[in-house]
Design a binder for these strands. Structure first.
Lengths: 221, 221
DNA sequence: TTCTTGTCACCTAGGTGTTAATAT
DNA sequence: ATATTAACACCTAGGTGACAAGAA
């Protein structure tokens, strides 16, 4: 009834141990959580939403010399739990099923005082994204039907560790290779690395050799 | 029940004779058609939409030496009439009234074969935008109530001539001064021209002196 | 030490009028 | 002549990881 999009990319990250950046202003997830939804009633209204549950009650630490995560103690105090409602909500089943549902407006933050409605997560803790489909039911006995009107989907391969800076260098490299917005950090000499995750080729003026020296000024000739 | 936003800007354009660019790919309107809506039922559903009616049955021509429009004959064959439905439709009255309704996704084209759903207009003809509010009525006798469920608003100051290139140079200048996306064409030596139409000041790195010479190369120092 | 923050160059994505070339 | 098209420099708006500095 719900299928995770870009599963192979999620699997690739999951095999390395997915990390998601959290910032004060809020950072999008990459990969973006996207699903295809099936089996809804075309003319009934639904609210689609996401939340994040702690995977365990632990705090983690990354050891660079062994390139591995280890437990660093008990979890910090839990943050105020928040839910992200998909901005198209409420909408009819027909709307949700006619295209991929993308949670690309969802942002993660570590700011406990956030007032932008972003999802608040503790850094160095592990989380499991969850996806919920709620049927809008205005009938008098909607309370009794609350359970059947509420469906939750969990994709194990989307769990991740929240971080303020990437820990595993291989995660950094996979993000750079697969996120179009990080194209500026790709090292490409030839066209072999130029194919993005969707199989698209770059525009002709792309892939000039990267230099991270910051010019102090520039002059027109 | 509907109030035009940015009326003073529309008036400024209307006094000069508003022109709107039409292109094959589709061009947004500037000013953008935006309204505040009042008096809807908060919990009923409405569809909001726009269409464009010919102001007259004439074709126009612009005389640069006299800076004026004149009739150039009868109108060309009318294009297939199209309606632009606001992408939030259908939505409850509460949604429409809680913020300004902006038709910034609406695009104008002169391509009669357009398959992007854009509004098709004949260049060098005059048009009157119209705004419609339609109550979604599922009752059995909705046919009888069709008229009361359908309200149309016309703001005379939003009429314009469709063009493929600006004719009146004063229109061009007003577009450049008031549209943020045309900031690159502003001639500014001091901060006096730097206040945009909303009264906002520019960001610190703006308003470098404009040069339309295209550098053949540039060098980092 | 370990983790977090703020700034930055470098991208994606797309909205401007200009200009030269092309229709009509 | 007049009208249209396509490429382009220059913007707005905002998403990346790198890096240096700061905080715990």
């Amino acid at each position: 009834e719900a299928k995770l999009e870009m599963k192979s990319l999620w699997d690739e990250f999951d095999d390395l141990g997915t990390e998601m950046i959290v910032t004060k202003a809020g950072r999008r997830m990459f990969p973006t959580f996207q699903v295809k939804v099936f089996g809804l009633d075309v003319n009934s209204e639904y609210i689609l939403m996401m939340d994040f549950t702690p995977v365990d009650d632990k705090r983690y630490r990354y050891a660079f010399h062994t390139s591995s995560w280890s437990v660093a103690g008990k979890a910090d105090a839990a943050m105020p739990p928040r839910i992200h409602v998909h901005p198209d909500s409420p909408a009819k089943g027909g709307h949700w099923m006619k295209q991929i549902v993308s949670f690309d407006k969802l942002k993660l933050t570590n700011n406990l005082l956030d007032d932008n409605g972003h999802i608040i997560l503790n850094s160095m803790h592990r989380f499991q994204p969850r996806f919920h489909v709620v049927l809008v039911d205005n009938s008098h006995d909607s309370v009794q039907r609350a359970e059947e009107n509420f469906k939750t989907f969990v994709f194990d391969e989307t769990k991740f560790t929240a971080v303020t800076a990437y820990q595993n260098h291989r995660i950094t490299q996979l993000k750079i290779q697969s996120n179009p917005f990080a194209k500026g950090f790709r090292d490409c000499d030839t066209e072999e690395c130029a194919i993005d995750v969707l199989g698209n080729y770059p525009s002709p003026n792309a892939s000039r050799s990267r230099s991270h020296h910051r010019p102090s000024s520039l002059q027109l000739m």
